[in-house]
Design a protein around this nucleic acid. Structure first.
Length: 566
RNA sequence: GGGUGAAUAGCUCAGUCGGAUAGAGCAACUGCCUUCUAAGCAGUCGGUCGGGGGUUCAAGUCCCUCUUCACCCGCCA
């Protein structure tokens, strides 16, 4: 047909409705005007010149000029057998491995982690896992807020109110520290003299004054241990590289910008002005890189980080996972970094924004007394609530399980539910946090998915089957509708994972796993596995095993473990 | 005032580069456990896809406009 029409993708997409087959090609309608022919005639000539008989039935022309394809069961069986033998379940390793920096979590020292950090942490871990699985070299960076004005403020306040905290490890717990931080902030906002003194503390910190550095280290250690408890529970690995890390590079960032002529002084501060950013009054909005008092701020730090990640870490792709409210900030930082020529053409730098976590009723999430919810308490409550649900279930079903089983199941499923609730939402929109919904055993939830995994394991136990001993030559026979539906869905795994890699939208993977669980449950409900003759029995066992492996892999990419029995 | 994002079933949300009759779950109602865990399955009910205009063979999806909501807008991060 020639290169003129090469741009008329999509060549082939999944069918919008099973009754139209498995795949559909919609190009005939688009070509009709260009070629001056009837769409159905074009479709016919495409079909006439196409030989796909190895893979599917004769393509059907329908409606306005749709070409519908139905894949042959024999082809599906061949593909599934290949998938079965592959430890990666047929998901290819990327052809272009990149060095990728994923910047996520990033809590602030001396502050409690909250639900916003939870979202960044869970999304970041998932995105990192997907990229790692695809064969990229991922550097997971925790850009903790461990530097800047707030430390001058906090250290100064503690010197007056609680001096032992600055010289003795563990003199305070994090909760106390948070309270003292708030008081320090209040003092800072009200008292100009205190403000000035706090700035002097920052100067001492930046100048590496030994006493101040010691105090700072104690505060950081304290917070770091608390954060680590959360990361350990959630099984999240991160390399800490806080804002302080970039301190030695800040002055040269400003110098570089000065040298390229981007710097403008405004009200005593060093700024870069960019097109497209205005303030309330409609005046150009600066990105301030050096404050009037000579100090640096987070924009400077972020600029230093961009430069360092490209020049020293050799990143090909940098991904920032922060709330959508920081979109303007990152747009400014990226633009300045580009103007400063720190970001070569081939490097992809992306802000991956996410919406707010809201409480019931779409309002800001908080405790009954109106305080911000601590992350630890939130996780504990999910586990506690699930534990109660489980105990009720065991009584209803007259099942006896050990305390250890109940505790372990509750811990794993409770935490997984919180993760899954977050990941299954489109990250770009706000979402309403609801324990009741995330812990449901129906619908697009962690318990539903984990149960779908446990079901084939249960079959294996009952039938005394070892899935690993089914044999490499065992046949897959797809005769029943439910088997075909399940088989087709299993084979979509690779497509979905590359989509998630491209769009960084974990909810696509969640949707896939949810549909897989549904299709497995339908198959399970309709057809017996153990009570049928060979070779059907082995074929169905293979389908069970493949479903389980796919769920395990998919959940693993979400950072969610599986349970063999629930 | 400017910017960004959103508005889809009573509620919470999906919706793939524009494709055929817009999907889940919850809630409400109805069936299915002597048969691999019913944490399941099947079904009923429920929609002017915020309003209006436009582009297109085709619009929830793209463009314009209006309304409403959320978030961001100089020396905090």
């Amino acid at each position: 047909m020639g290169d003129d029409y090469a741009g008329v993708d999509p060549l082939l997409v999944l069918s919008s409705n099973p009754k139209f087959g498995d795949y559909q090609a919609n190009m005939a309608m688009g070509l009709a005007k260009k070629l001056g022919q009837q769409p159905r005639a074009i479709a016919q000539s495409i079909v006439d010149n196409l030989d796909v008989s190895e893979i599917c039935e004769l393509p059907q022309i329908a409606g306005a000029g749709f070409i519908n394809f139905t894949v042959k069961p024999s082809y599906l069986a061949t593909q599934l057998q290949a998938m079965q033998l592959d430890s990666r379940l047929g998901v290819a390793v990327t052809e272009k491995p990149q060095r990728v920096v994923v910047d996520f979590s990033s809590p602030n020292i001396a502050k409690e982690m909250h639900v916003g950090h939870l979202r960044s942490t869970i999304l970041g871990d998932c995105i990192a896992r997907v990229l790692e699985f695809r064969g990229h070299d991922v550097l997971r960076l925790n850009h903790v807020g461990d530097w800047g004005t707030q430390f001058g403020m906090l250290i100064l306040y503690l010197r007056e109110a609680y001096p032992q905290a600055l010289t003795t490890a563990d003199a305070l717990d994090l909760g106390d520290l948070v309270v003292l931080y708030k008081r320090a902030k209040q003092r800072f906002d009200e008292d100009p003299q205190f403000q000035e003194a706090a700035r002097q503390e920052v100067v001492k910190l930046q100048a590496k004054d030994p006493d101040t550095i010691k105090a700072w280290n104690l505060l950081c250690d304290q917070s770091r241990r608390e954060f680590q408890v959360i990361y350990d529970r959630l099984k999240i690995e991160l390399t800490e590289r806080g804002e302080s890390f970039y301190n030695p590079y800040l002055s040269s960032v400003v110098e570089d910008l000065r040298a390229t002529g981007l710097l403008v002084e405004s009200d005593g501060a060093q700024c870069v002005f960019l097109d497209g950013f205005t303030n309330r009054e409609g005046d150009p909005l600066p990105l301030i890189v050096q404050k009037t008092d000579g100090g640096y701020n987070y924009a400077t730090t972020d600029l230093a980080a961009v430069r360092y990640r490209i020049q020293t870490d050799k990143a090909d792709r940098i991904i920032y996972i922060t709330d959508a409210g920081q979109a303007d900030h990152f747009a400014q930082v990226f633009q300045v970094a580009k103007l400063a020529k720190w970001i070569p053409e081939h490097i992809e730098i992306t802000h991956v924004p996410f919406g707010l976590v809201l409480g019931e009723g779409g309002k800001k999430i908080k405790t009954r007394s109106g305080k911000a919810i601590k992350l630890k308490d939130l996780l504990d409550e999910a586990i506690e609530r699930f534990s109660n649900l489980l105990k009720t279930r065991l009584i209803d079903e007259e099942r006896k399980e050990t305390e250890e089983f109940i505790a372990n199941s509750s811990e794993v499923i409770g935490l997984s539910s919180v993760k899954y609730a977050d990941l299954s939402q489109n990250r770009t929109s706000n979402y309403v946090f609801s324990y009741d919904k995330m812990l449901l055993d129906k619908g697009n939830t962690a318990p539903y998915m984990m149960y779908a995994y446990a079901r084939p394991q249960s079959i294996a136990r009952k039938g005394d089957i070892d899935f690993n001993q089914l044999g490499d030559n065992a046949q897959i026979i797809l005769a029943e509708e439910a088997e075909l539906t399940l088989a087709k869905h299993l084979l979509q795994l690779g497509t979905i994972i590359t989509e998630v890699e491209r769009d960084l939208l974990p909810n696509r993977l969640c949707q896939y796993l949810f549909e897989l669980s549904q299709k497995f449950n339908q198959f399970y409900d309709k057809h017996s596995v153990l009570q049928v003759e060979e070779p059907i029995k082995t074929s169905r066992l293979l389908l069970c095993d493949l479903t389980a492996k796919t769920l395990k892999l998919g959940l693993n990419l979400l950072g969610i473990p599986v349970l063999e029995r629930m």
